[in-house]
Design a protein around this nucleic acid. Structure first.
Length: 924
DNA sequence: ATGATGCATGGAA
DNA sequence: CTTCCATGCATCA
């Protein structure tokens, strides 16, 4: 067909329609029909072209042909047997086909919940019409009036530009290009299109080959789906003289470039677009990229995201797998995963270089991206995102959420260059719907648009609130945008602010993944839930039942352990931020506002439980015991270090065991309950069990036994532990920030300088404005007293706990006074036995508590935490070895009146010493 | 009154 | 100085 197509271009002026064969006068204008595999278009006579454009071509000429099927929805006849019709239907996962009109209707009815049924979805049912589709209702994309049984107009002239944009947009996908390079697929030169903004795109890239991958549904009786890659040769593209350089989209107003470069469709020349077909694709049914026609300049684009209807990663994997004859899976393999190194500021580009094997010159956007937007996503994360599929992840950029971004307005401001570099070009402010998948595989549709601003543009993603909330993101957290190839799906990941600070801390011994929970594709949902559950953010999601720990957790345990939140989120990281790329670039470089938000966010996340559980005396243990106000305080010369998280179990004999995982081999070793481990503990440090003092030694317990050890959680490992701890941490976090505000609520605003006013100057830490206080549901700013949301319930529970504790303290105090009276009346002061297991990690009470218990019994946690040692010379803190000295009985501390406090004080008031629970709840 | 929308402003880089 | 972008705020529904 390719040859035919080539021949059809100019030579024989005979209608390309074999059923017609009407001769065309030499001078007759080319009337383009469907696109041929060559990329050219069938040269049709007027009549046939009319049929084609009206969508009646198949009915007219193919009515007797095989391949007619009925739409599963409307039962309308759909021709599934020819190139002309191959865009007119979708293959359903469950079998059968659905006409494009029904597909579109379905989409319209559930725009944000992409239906998983069709294997593939053509590029969004035509584009949205900016004028007809106010952004307000963009997510309710209405049906388009046109006939969609066939999609002849996809390729008609008016649509060239969008196609080009799309192609050009996708060309800029290095991974794809590699696929191409490494591929052996036949390549067919496609004469087509001028550059217009394709040239813009290309200008950013020095790729000698670019691939456009467009999934389309082929016409093999609807039985096969074929994906095609379009290859684009930049050099050839330049043949037509379209400037391909000097217009990095990030530097030139795309609009102007676009306008200037927009060629009349008829002038499309045969510069080189290679149209590649997967080996398994049917040669007889090549198809253009799925690009649904519309006059509108703004088709729904999501890279190829619109194709990916799958709601979860499995679907995506399946999607790949479903492709016939080992298309992508075969050709893509894993060849294109990012380099194993972190993609950080300095090497983000080089990574891509490495992948692309070409100089850095190009990478238009990336090259021009401010460092703070450079994705720090790691290969580990990438693979986690891509899972076991053969997908290739291309990190695009990331952004620290501002208060506005994370607020309820639902508008995420996109860095201009990033938006222009990685998102489809938009010429209208209304932009276009953009499908983005989150790490769970859930698909969202945002409106990607811009606002004119100072002769420039301000790009925003609208409608992100649900997504942000589902990810439980707050200002200061980071969202990352990546692209999954070959699907071309946009994936939106995230990183919590807390994990950022630790990322840098643990850089040396980690692979850099702070996702930690973004495990493989199959586990993605669970994984993300793990993240979700670890953060008691005020969100619906937090209250949803999760089975976040499952068997797969175990499989991933070592991975998780390396990136465990506890480990990562140690207070040390916060206490001594140290030089970090993030601080220096992403966080600190741009905006004070941003930095404040972020620091605040980070600091608020670091609760005293979290900190104390990991604090260890420094390597130089000598300490002085000083007596201050009658209290023995162990004083350390050096600041504490971060200890290793462990978990405890009780064996049959009732003996408490501590379990720690080797940093190197990830094996779990049984240790005495009072063992005190350094942060990076390895088997060789196992002085308690010489037999297992080497990584070569087998693990004492199998995973199953581990599971049995803690029957309440099959995750058992530190992962569960970590999760639990995180949950604890986040509970406090959420409480201390949002929940406290919630309790204060009802008009009782904090007496803070950042108190919300009608004229809101700035969102500062502690700000109680609507933007800064994200309510659990995201609906409505306030927590009513009767609110039963997770946060409020927890707050109330904690409040009860506090009150109980105070009562108890009071009674203890009284008892102590009595005793002191007795003592002062003759008996010498007696030092109570306070020898405490230096098991700072978890004190014994918690040792017997299962993680689940810990999670569920807030009271337990708090009781424990009161007794946790704090290694510090600060008089108000506890000595690690005298931990049970109940210094909390200091009336001035424990009993100090609860004063509402400016939250801004909290982070700054404690240095490396974590805020105490008392402090935290003082706001009550 | 409230939320949505889109432009304007001004701080920061 | 320009550009970016966070967010203020006017306007509208």
């Amino acid at each position: 067909m390719a040859s035919v197509g080539a021949a059809a271009s100019k030579a024989a002026r005979i209608c390309f329609n074999s059923h017609c064969k009407e001769a065309k006068p030499e001078a007759a204008p080319v009337r383009k029909g469907w696109r041929l595999r060559s990329g050219e278009y069938a040269d049709l006579c007027d009549r046939c072209c009319g049929n084609y454009e009206q969508g009646t071509f198949c009915e007219t000429f193919h009515s007797d042909d095989a391949g007619w099927r009925n739409c599963e929805s409307c039962r309308k006849r759909v021709h599934c047997g020819c190139i002309v019709s191959n865009q007119a239907y979708l293959l359903l996962d469950a079998g059968g086909v659905e006409c494009i009109a029904c597909v579109r209707k379905a989409l319209v009815s559930a725009p944000n919940q992409m239906r998983p049924s069709p294997s593939f979805l053509p590029l969004q049912q035509a584009s949205e019409r900016p004028k007809d589709l106010p952004t307000k209702s963009w997510n309710q994309m209405s049906s388009y009036p046109g006939q969609w049984r066939q999609m002849p107009k996809i390729w008609n002239l008016s649509n060239q530009t969008e196609l080009q944009r799309r192609i050009s947009y996708e060309f800029d996908r290095p991974s794809s290009s590699e696929k191409l390079i490494s591929g052996v697929r036949p390549s067919i030169c496609v004469p087509e299109k001028k550059a217009d903004d394709l040239s813009e795109r290309m200008a950013f890239s020095s790729l000698s080959h670019h691939v456009v991958r467009d999934r389309y549904v082929n016409g093999n009786n609807g039985l096969d789906s074929v994906s095609a890659f379009n290859t684009y040769h930049q050099e050839e593209r330049n043949v037509d003289g379209t400037p391909d350089s000097g217009h990095p989209r990030g530097e030139t107003d795309p609009l102007s470039v676009r306008k200037g470069a927009m060629p009349p469709p008829s002038s499309v020349s045969s510069s080189g677009v290679n149209f590649e077909v997967y080996p398994g694709s049917s040669v007889s049914t090549p198809a253009p990229p799925v690009y649904v026609k519309d006059e509108s300049p703004s088709p729904m684009v999501g890279l190829s995201a619109p194709y990916a209807l799958s709601r979860d990663s499995n679907d995506q994997s399946r999607l790949l797998a479903n492709q016939p004859a080992g298309q992508t899976t075969q050709s893509l393999g894993k060849q294109l995963f990012l380099t194993p190194n972190n993609v950080n500021d300095s090497n983000a580009d080089s990574n891509f270089q490495m992948r692309n094997g070409r100089p850095k010159v190009d990478s238009r956007g990336r090259n021009h991206l401010l460092s703070r937007y450079c994705p720090r996503i790691t290969s580990e994360e990438l693979q986690q995102i891509s899972g076991d599929s053969n997908s290739v992840i291309t990190p695009l950029f990331e952004k620290i959420l501002s208060a506005s971004d994370a607020g309820r307005i639902g508008r995420l401001v996109l860095p201009k260059k990033c938006a222009e570099a990685y998102f489809p070009p938009i010429s209208q402010p209304e932009g276009l719907p953009l499908k983005v998948q989150d790490a769970t595989g859930k698909e969202w549709v945002f409106q990607f648009r811009f606002w004119p601003n100072n002769n420039s543009r301000m790009y925003v993603l609208e409608g992100v609130t649900p997504c942000i909330q589902s990810m439980q993101l707050l200002a200061g957290d980071i969202v990352t945008f990546s692209r999954i190839d070959p699907e071309g799906r946009l994936v939106m990941g995230f990183r919590k602010a807390s994990s950022i600070s630790t990322e840098q801390e643990n850089q040396p011994n980690r692979n850099g993944s702070s996702f930690a929970t973004l495990s493989d594709a199959n586990n993605r949902n669970n994984a993300i839930e793990t993240i979700a559950n670890t953060s008691m953010r005020p969100s619906k999601g937090a209250t949803e039942p999760k089975s976040s720990i499952n068997a797969e957790d175990q499989a991933n345990q070592s991975n998780f352990d390396k990136t465990g939140f506890i480990q990562k989120d140690g207070p040390g990281s916060k206490a001594s931020p140290g030089p970090s790329k993030r601080k220096g670039s992403a966080l600190g470089s741009k905006s004070k506002r941003l930095r404040i938000e972020n620091e605040d966010s980070i600091e608020l996340k670091l609760t005293w439980e979290e900190a104390q559980e990991l604090l260890r005396p420094s390597a130089n243990p000598p300490s002085n015991v000083v007596v201050i106000d009658g209290h023995e305080i162990e004083e350390f010369e050096e600041a504490p270090v971060i200890g290793k998280p462990t978990f405890f179990s009780t064996d049959i004999s009732g003996e408490i065991r501590q379990w720690a995982q080797c940093e190197n081999c990830s094996k779990w070793r049984k240790l005495p309950a009072d063992a005190l481990l350094p942060f990076r503990w390895t088997c060789s440090d196992n002085k308690w069990d010489q037999e297992r003092a080497s990584c070569a030694s087998p693990q004492e317990l199998s995973k199953e036994e581990f599971a049995a050890l803690l029957p309440t959680n099959n995750g058992v490992s530190k992962k569960s532990k970590t999760k639990v701890e995180n949950e604890t941490v986040e509970v406090s976090d959420g409480l201390d920030t949002l929940a406290n505000l919630a309790i204060l609520g009802e008009g009782e605003a904090l007496p803070s300088s950042s108190q919300a006013t009608t004229k809101h100057p700035r969102h500062r830490p502690g700000c109680t404005c609507i933007v800064c206080i994200q309510p659990p549901s995201g609906k409505g700013p306030k927590h009513q007293q009767t609110c039963t949301c997770n946060v409020c319930l927890t707050v109330k529970r904690r409040f009860r706990t506090l009150m109980l504790r105070r009562e108890r303290r009071q009674s203890e105090k009284e008892a102590e006074k009595k005793q002191q009276l007795i003592q002062s009346s003759g008996m010498p002061p007696q030092v109570v036995d306070q020898t405490v297991p230096a098991n700072n990690n978890n004190n014994l009470p918690s040792a017997t508590a299962t993680p689940e218990k810990l999670v569920n019994e807030d009271v337990t946690l708090e009781e424990e935490s009161e007794q946790k040692p704090v290694m510090t010379a600060v008089a108000t803190s506890l000595s690690p070895v005298k931990a049970t000295i109940d210094l909390n009985i200091q009336p001035e501390r424990e009993e100090e009146p609860s004063q509402p406090r400016d939250l801004t004080d909290i982070p700054n008031s404690r240095g490396w010493l974590p805020r105490t629970d008392t402090e935290g709840e003082a706001a009550e």
